[in-house]
Computed example of a mutant assay.
Amino acid sequence: MNNRFKASILKFEYDLWSYYLAVPKPIGDKFIEGDDRRVICVINKSTPIYSALMSKGDVYSIYVKKDFMKKHELVEGDEVDVTLEKDRSEYGMPMPESFQVLLDQDKEGCLYFHALTKGKQRTLIHLVGKVKNVDSQLAKGLAIMQHLKESQGQLDFKRLNILIKEYNNRK
């Protein structure tokens, strides 16, 4: 199932999130299955945005990050072509191959990772995937796995960031 429609890039009234697309309720309703609101959004045939439909009054919204706007030369008020597809991926976003290899090789770390909420899993996947260099991805992934085992699955992002810096300096 997918749907195409036109929408304008809008700006939130508050600063937590900057920009969003309004998705008409009848279109958004087709993609919601229980608590699962995950979709893949393509704007003007660009790189996909893995997101959740967020309720915003009589419409749904999809957050659009500032860096995406800049990369694709979009500004508030631009009308764009939007294609939505139901996200049926395991994690709600692509898993970097380097991190999947680490999960496959480390049973204990994998158990702790999969005991986390889906949102926390996506946060860790994003941390690894936002860097393109495979060596840096591996360093972050190794730090995450060590942290999960040391903390027995209790995330402490301050400690994790220290570990990531330590692993990055080992190169």
Rank of each mutant, 00 (worst) to 15 (best):
L10I: 09
E13W: 00
E13S: 14
Y14S: 14
D15T: 15
D15A: 14
L16H: 11
W17L: 07
Y20L: 06
Y20C: 00
L21K: 05
K25Y: 06
K25W: 06
I27C: 02
K30S: 09
I32C: 04
I32H: 02
D36G: 10
R37S: 08
R38V: 01
R38E: 01
V39C: 05
I40T: 01
I40A: 04
I40Y: 04
C41S: 02
V42D: 03
I43C: 00
N44G: 11
K45L: 02
K45P: 03
S46T: 05
I49V: 08
Y50A: 04
Y50E: 07
L53F: 13
L53G: 04
M54E: 10
M54F: 08
S55T: 02
D58H: 11
V59W: 00
Y60G: 00
I62E: 06
I62T: 02
Y63Q: 08
V64A: 04
V64T: 00
K65F: 12
D67H: 11
F68T: 01
F68Q: 03
K70M: 09
E76V: 12
G77N: 11
G77T: 06
D78F: 11
D78R: 12
D78Y: 02
D78I: 10
D81S: 08
V82P: 03
T83I: 12
E85N: 03
E85T: 10
K86Q: 09
D87A: 14
R88N: 14
R88S: 13
S89E: 08
Y91W: 14
Y91M: 13
Y91P: 05
G92I: 03
M93H: 07
P94Q: 13
P94Y: 11
P94G: 11
M95Y: 08
S98T: 15
S98G: 05
V101R: 15
V101T: 15
L102R: 06
L102P: 04
L103T: 00
D104P: 09
D104K: 15
D106H: 13
K107S: 13
E108W: 11
G109T: 12
Y112T: 04
F113I: 11
F113Y: 10
H114L: 14
H114C: 12
A115S: 15
L116C: 07
K118E: 12
G119W: 07
K120F: 04
K120Q: 12
K120W: 11
R122N: 03
T123K: 15
L124V: 07
H126Q: 05
V128C: 09
G129P: 04
V131L: 07
K132Q: 09
N133R: 14
N133E: 15
V134M: 13
V134I: 15
D135T: 07
Q137P: 08
Q137C: 05
